[in-house]
Each structure stands twice: as C-alpha cells, then as structure tokens.
C-alpha cells in the first residue's frame, strides 16, 4: 500500500515536469524561433508602434473607419477578458439590444444610403460575436459601411471597395470556414492609402 502510494507520488511529479514544464517549454522555444510573429499575438505595427492584433477586434467609433460587430466584453473589445453575451434566443433584453443596434446603424449609415431599411442590415452587424473580439465582419456588412467611409474620407467608392476585397480573408484553402473582412487591417490600409 505504502509502496503504491510512493509510486503514485513520483508519477505525479514526473508527469507534471514532463507535460507541464518540458512540453510547453520546447513548444515555446520552437514557436519563438519559427513563427515569432504568430507566437506573440500577431501584432500589427504602424510606424513602429503596436496598434492592435490581426486577431482581435478593437473599438471604432469615428465615421471614417469601418466599425466592428457588437461586443459583450467589458469594456467592449477587451482582448484581455473575452466573453459571450449569453442572452437567450427569446430574451427580452436581447430584443432590446438588437433594436438599439439597428437604430444606431440606420442613423449612422442612413444619410449615405438613401432608402436604407432594417431589412438591408445583415445579421452579424447587430449581434454580438462569440469571443467579443471577432476581428471580422461579413462582406455584406462591409459593403453597407463602404459608402459612408468613402464619403467621409473623400475617396472614390471603387477605391474603398478595392481595399475591402484586399482585406477580405476568404475561406481557408478556399474551402473551410466563411469569408470575413478584417476590420483593423482594412482601417489601417485606408489610413495608409491616404498617407497617414
């Protein structure tokens, strides 16, 4: 019995050292050498300063930028504390939140899109993402925002659309997943196109 106990104790220690320290250390060493950019958070730098990550949404409120999907984190787009919204499919609070999101979009995009109605708003624009930092919006939502961005920036609509397609991540290997427009990369590209 005592012998069995001793065996278990040693096994716990050995397994913790192997799988808890050695394994992640070797993987970290490999990652830092072979995939340094990805291993450290896929950070995006502009003029040498970190402005965000390819893999995290951030808050955009100004009209010259494409806006992200709603986020349930506190504060919104907190890449240090991700969370779902967790409101159920029949929740009155969800109905209220969606209504507010719809009103905000109609108010923001309406002036640039005459005749815009609620039926023109794609669903991802008014629903919170699962992570709270979904870096993508649907191509449909990007199209909806394109007239505003073009007008505010005094750019041609076709130039903005060209940048949208350049910053659209298609399906992986043209097959897996769904296409999405990376909002931060798109906004960085817009700033760059105008010399900022």
């Amino acid at each position: 019995m005592l012998r069995d106990l001793k065996t278990s104790v040693i096994a716990v220690v050995v397994l913790t050292v192997v799988f808890g320290l050695t394994w992640p250390a070797i993987m970290t060493g490999f990652a830092q050498v072979a995939f340094n950019h990805q291993a450290n958070g896929s950070l995006i730098k502009v003029h040498g300063k970190v402005v965000g990550s390819e893999l995290a949404a951030q808050s955009f409120t100004k009209p010259q930028y494409f806006h992200e999907r709603p986020s349930a984190t506190a504060p919104a787009y907190n890449a240090g504390a991700t969370t779902f919204d967790n409101l159920g499919p029949t929740s009155p609070d969800l109905a209220k939140a969606i209504k507010q999101n719809v009103q905000a979009i109609l108010k923001l995009e309406g002036p640039y899109n005459p005749g815009l109605t609620v039926h023109d708003i794609p669903v991802d624009a008014v629903t919170t993402s699962a992570s709270g930092i979904d870096p993508d919006i649907s191509p449909a939502y990007a199209q909806l925002q394109s007239r505003r961005v073009a007008a505010v920036r005094h750019m041609s609509l076709s130039a903005v659309k060209k940048l949208i397609s350049a910053n659209t991540d298609g399906r992986s290997l043209d097959f897996f997943g769904e296409p999405g427009v990376n909002v931060l990369e798109l906004n960085v590209a817009l700033d760059k196109a105008q010399g900022n």
Binding site: N86, P122, D124
Partner: peptide, 11 residues
C-alpha cells in the same frame, strides 16, 4: 456576403 441565421454569439 452574409451567412444569415442566428449569428448571436457566433463568429
């Protein structure tokens, strides 16, 4: 350009 459906808490 939209997947439609229940995108609440989806990516």
């Amino acid at each position: 350009g939209s997947s439609g459906g229940n995108m609440q808490d989806k990516e």
